[in-house]
Design a protein around this nucleic acid. Sequence first.
RNA 1: GGGCCGUUAGCUCAACGGGUAGAGCUCCGGACUUUUAAUCCGGCGGAGCGGGUUCGAGUCCUGCACGGCCUACCA
Length: 518
Amino acid sequence: MDGAAPPDPPHTATGPDGHAEQPAEEAGRLDALIAERRAKLQRLRARHIEPYPVGVTVTDALADVTARFSDRLEPGEGSGEAASVAGRLVARRGHGKIVFLLLREADAELQVMAQLDVLGAEAMALVADLDVGDWVAATGEVVRSRRGELSVQATAVTLIGKALRPLPDKWHGLRDTETRFRQRYVDLAVNADARRVFTIRARVLAALRGEMTERGYVEVETPMLHPIPGGAAAKPFVTRSHALDMDLYLRIAPELYLKRLVAGGMPRVFEINRVFRNEGISPRHNPEFTMLESYEAYADYTDVMVLVQALVQRAAHEAVATTTVTYGGRAVELGGPWPRRTMLELVREATGRSDLDYDTSIEAVRTLCGEHGIAVEDAWGTGKLVLELYEKLVEHTLWEPTFVTDYPVEVSPLARRHRDDPRVTERFEAIVVGRELANAFSELTDPDDQRARLEAQALAKAAGDEEAMVVDEDYLRAMEFGMPPMGGLGLGVDRLVMLLADVHTIRDVILFPTLRPE
RNA sequence: GGGCCGUUAGCUCAACGGGUAGAGCUCCGGACUUUUAAUCCGGCGGAGCGGGUUCGAGUCCUGCACGGCCUACCA
């Protein structure tokens, strides 16, 4: 019985290929692809070829070669000029004794021809082991192929960085949003649109810095770690200093430090850098985002309006070469002077209550909010209620650039009271495509008024408003030393990039947006 | 934070009233000295994680994870 081996095992029938001995590999497809490339790596090392060499000599940027020969050479013609280029191998077309390699460096692409009778058998064997995704250098004459493609007729092809993982589909690219954000290196490698957006971002930053610098503003760097969070109404991130044995806050705005600098005698300062707000994450909100803030002595908010227009228009010119941009299929004209509208008149128009004013009884304004389905809180004064009406009814309707001016004092604790109306401040927000792009005011420079406003904020905080400000005694001391009048600005750089790049989520303009770990 | 939706091969996408999941690209082997998503022949590869219902679950229920959208807060 125990010796009666079944003569005809029913489950081991093998096909003509007969791989019955192979244990069922549980490793997935990806592991197999990686194993394949590792095998190539081993073959190279066995031939004493280093797949991760130290720096290589590359004399020509791909973009320079393509530009230099863009309108030269007939199909099949050689230039007699040599080039030494490098890039990522993004496509290969093998024909046995000739192999076409497409290299990409940034947005430039150039074909390399690897030909048996030019390179020799040994080098061709190396070319045969190249994979899409590898970093490759090539040297040779710049020629135009018979079909007219500018090419390097390689006399040497060198692997300069082996890729062990496969790149996504060459045609469909990478679409999965999560992978695009988590593995931005892959997104940038295969999606031209990702490169386009971040090129725009770089140009916007350069344009903003250029305009500010030319206008005589000095770029400064103020603390990211604040003992007291201030300068905006937002929940901060808290961190811990072991050396000081105290909590510190990642800044929610650089505002109060920049104003200290103006008090100290720097009449025009600006800073472009990250701020951090511990609030919700959404297609338009990332916990860390980039702000341009600037302060100019002797200026008021009307001067800042001129500055904002100049900044946005210059950024548009330098990033996308026009001030007429398209956002979500709809045109926006960023050029020309932007209209100025007070918040009150916009709310009057939207509600049809031409008699509405900051003196209107609070009950009447609450009722008005109720009529428009706006939930209100008991602690809100008339100013906050009017702001709610504006934000819910008006802001999203302002497509073309608009300066919305004269915000209520109640919601503007750092802005100077309006010279003609103490109930409102000399503050504006620049609204474009229904979204706030910038916030600015004639800064409050009266230390007594400032103290009163901060103390009101402190009361609100004590009452449970997590975003209310706290009293910053050192900032008040700086004010007491005397401040010149000044105009201040905060401009959301990410949103400006979104506008100019025509993208609709902030994660598309931030290289590594905040995500939960995988 | 709340609601809704999603997760199928390395990538991009399918299919089915619950019955052993298909394609293109990639990849591997072969042919090919001018391709352009090269082509031709052949081949490999898969249900986010965990429970449950069921004779049988990728499909139904449920928990978790991650993501997307809306909403709230905000910029």
